[in-house]
Amino acid sequence: MKNKIKVYRAMHDLTQEGLATELGVTRQTVLAIEKGKYDPSLELAFRIARYFGVNIEEIFTYE
């Protein structure tokens, strides 16, 4: 699964730590998701999409 979290994070001028705090996860989790090492749960994926105000498929794509 690929994602554009890094792009959206840059658009919102957010650090990994900042996004992690907003989502209630650790910075390592945000980093692992960005690098494709970890696929988030559906709930966390929706939380990320909701935080950036977009649909989930705009951030996550299945390949």
Partner: peptide, 8 residues
Amino acid sequence: KYGEWETD
């Protein structure tokens, strides 16, 4: 495996 010690 799940990126515990990854750096950025």
